[in-house]
């Protein structure tokens, strides 16, 4: 179990044994053709595989891992946008998805997500001011007279000029649109926020400003985060704990200092070794050696074994369980499970 549960207080959000499998969502024509052998069947993906994750109030949990390993899917499960194929989501200890619809909608307002793809998530026909004020108005958080002031403050908080409120999403640059998505998620004063690559599109000075805003909100309002990012420096800066995913499974979880200082899982070690720095200067990049593992047909046993420098015979046969290797530090690896 994760460290959170040992501190005695109740996790704000807990995912218990959640899995998500995507079937082949082909049209009937393709399905028919596949059945007749004209097309190879599109496989199903185990995007998330029995993940336990408990997030304490006020905590920032970082989520890292290779592209396609299931981070966004896990984030969408956490906010209730994707129903898990198995497992349960608990909000303050309650099985929120089994509550009556009205009760659920009320709680759901406190759970927001900043999407990886800001383009698709902003209605092109609304001005930015309308986009930001819409939900807080509907839910009675602000009145009509406060709207202008509220929008101006929201925009400034994410480093945008208040005069931009009357423009439409397509008139903004990529990073400006990403910040509109952030302002919009924050507008309903959530208690829990999933940030999916929320600062990936921002240049470093604006990124620093938004990261400082996240830190302030956490300090002042106790905002809790699941922070998905491929940027290890950002995660290291912001997170208290970090979960590392590999092909659908959480393979390591620890406090941030512990994870970056003493990574236990060979995948985490490889990940940290490759983190780029400013100092290296011009260099020749090396292509990945050997086959990349496919999420459609993940390797047997420990999914990482074909790329692991320490792989042993057992690694291809049996999936290692997530076990505590030091207080509050879990790793799923046969090297440390003996």
């Amino acid at each position: 179990m994760s460290v959170g549960s040992t501190t005695g207080t109740m996790p704000l959000l807990a995912l218990q044994g959640v899995s998500k499998q995507f079937g082949s969502a082909q049209g009937w024509l393709e399905r028919g053709a596949a059945r007749l052998g004209w097309l190879p069947p599109a496989g199903s993906v185990q995007a998330v595989d029995q993940v336990d994750l408990a997030i304490m109030p006020g905590e920032v949990v970082g989520l890292v891992g290779e592209s396609g390993c299931g981070k966004s899917t896990l984030g969408r499960i956490a906010v209730g946008l994707t129903p898990p194929s198995a497992g349960e989501r608990r909000w303050c200890g309650e099985a929120i998805d089994r509550l009556p619809a009205s009760e659920r909608r009320r709680l759901q307002l406190g759970i927001q997500m900043i999407f990886q793809d800001p383009y698709a998530s902003l209605n092109p026909r609304l001005t930015v001011g309308e986009l930001i004020a819409e939900a807080p108005r509907v839910h009675g958080l602000i009145g009509r007279r406060e709207q202008g002031e509220f929008v101006a403050r929201s925009l400034q908080g994410v480093g945008l000029d208040a005069t931009m409120a009357s423009r439409y999403p397509h008139q903004f640059s990529g990073g400006q649109r990403a910040r509109i998505g952030i302002a919009r998620a924050l507008a309903v004063r959530p208690a829990f926020l999933v940030c999916d690559e929320a600062v990936a599109a921002l240049d470093v000075s604006v990124q620093a400003q938004v990261l400082n805003l996240f830190a302030d909100l956490r300090e002042q309002l106790g905002l809790t985060y699941l922070f998905i990012s491929h940027d290890l420096a950002v995660v290291r800066h912001l997170a208290d704990r970090v979960a590392v995913m590999y092909l659908g499974r959480v393979v390591e979880m620890a406090r941030v200092g512990e994870l970056f200082g003493r990574p236990a899982h060979p995948y985490t070690q490889a990940l940290l070794a490759e983190a780029p720095t400013l100092k290296v200067g011009k260099r020749q990049f090396i292509p990945i050696q050997g086959e990349l593992p496919s999420p459609l047909a993940p390797p047997s046993g420990c999914h990482f074994h074909p790329r692991c420098p320490h792989a042993m015979p057992v690694c291809s046969k049996q999936a290692p369980a997530l076990r505590e290797v030091a207080p509050g530090h879990d790793s799923a690896c046969h090297l440390t499970s003996g």
């Binding site: 006020g58 704990r241 200092g257």
Partner: peptide
């Protein structure tokens, strides 16, 4: 402003607000 360059080698002072 680059976080990697920031001197944030905080070992375990999680919870404290660190500013870039």
């Amino acid at each position: 402003s680059t976080p990697a360059a920031a001197p944030s080698q905080h070992a375990d002072n999680a919870g404290a607000t660190r500013r870039l």
